[in-house]
Amino acid sequence: MKKNSFYLIVGCIALALLAIFWYFVEVSVEVHRPFIIEAAFIVAIVIIYFVRKRVTDINEDERSAKITEQAAVRTFQVFWVIFCAFSIGAVMQILYVPTFPREHFEFHTQELLGPKMMGYFQLGLLCLMFFLYVAFRIYYARKYGDWETDEE
């Protein structure tokens, strides 16, 4: 399979996912089944994974593998620090740990980090990780000479 065909399929899957999300959001809210959207997302990722394995004209060698690896590691490092910091805050709220100093205890952090906000925060974090990964990829691609020009 050609690379362009792969991107076309990914685009179609993304559109299908969007349509599923759009259609089922109402249904999911009514019958409380976010499961449909979650399942659709997992199925889409699995399909993309198997389609990706059939692409033949992607030139990958050890340097590009290293760029991917380095970018992924750095993104993960940032991810776990932010996610841990957020999780500690969330656990403190669940356990009703008072803030310091005590007089600010009535500050409405409960609304600030309620379940709904947690969901939004996680989505935001995932988006941040995506952009961070792209940025790290560009950085390491530059570092390992991706845009070097030669006299040849």
Partner: peptide, 27 residues
């Protein structure tokens, strides 16, 4: 050419260029 060597050993031309310029140390 860089392209010839890259094809012969199964990497991209950019990798040969990066090695030549000292940007990347090969395995």
């Amino acid at each position: 050419t860089q392209e010839d060597l890259a094809q012969a050993i199964g990497v991209t031309r950019q990798t040969i260029l990066a090695i030549e310029k000292g940007k990347y140390v090969p395995s």
